[in-house]
Design a protein around this nucleic acid. Structure first.
Lengths: 108, 108
DNA sequence: TGACTATATGGCCATATGGCCATATAATAG
DNA sequence: CTATTATATGGCCATATGGCCATATAGTCA
């Protein structure tokens, strides 16, 4: 095992870790979490989210594209609006774990 | 509602988002994910993890401290070793969601 | 005590991130 | 067609991140 440069298994793992890290990085920002919170209820346009977040439109657009390419959101175009929606609802479930972490923190 | 500067509910939410984002940021790095993978099985010393990861000892120490202050790990000192262990096993469950994201990605 | 070992911290550097402004692009409306 | 609206992209800047090296700190053992 562990022939040059790495065995296939190892390379696969490394790549998996990179991917998983990328998903967490997408969720590692207040603004993007608020976007997800909103999209949990229904799809929204970029403009709507921009108003809700109180950030620059370009900033929101960049956040959306990060969530999009991370595979967490989906979008569709209608008229000259782009509607974004939550693609992976289980992302919300992850928050039940993060809240456990927070609870444990507070009890320390 | 929404008295100056924000109502209490809103402030709480903002703070929650900050905390959740911090947890995800802690998980948003290959090396730290590998550490968690290892600690899933049993506790390890800094030295063991340093060998396993092939990174500088100081780098590993910093990663551990990030996971520690994020509330994901715990540690104990014995002799002149510090053993780190996984505090919140449900962190592993989050990976079942991230793998769903990845699967969906690959099918696109 | 002093020497040794394990871990943590500070300094440094290259790169990434998150925000804004300005502007480009795309679609609609007139 | 032109003007308007919605969104995306590029440039910029301040700050954060992740890595290493060097060194400080803490604990053990003789």
């Amino acid at each position: 095992m562990a022939i040059w440069p790495y065995n296939r298994q190892y390379v696969k793992k490394r790549e998996d870790y990179r991917q998983v890290a990328r998903i967490h990085r997408a969720l590692a920002n207040e603004a993007r979490l608020m976007i997800i919170e909103r999209l949990k209820k229904r799809e929204h346009t970029v403009g709507e989210l921009t108003k809700l977040l109180g950030l620059d439109q370009s900033t929101v657009s960049k956040h959306l594209s990060i969530l999009l390419t991370a595979g967490i959101l989906d979008n569709r175009k209608q008229a000259n609006n782009v509607y974004y929606r939550l693609l992976i609802p289980c992302v919300m479930d992850m928050f039940s774990c993060t809240s456990k972490v927070l609870k444990k923190m507070q009890s320390m």
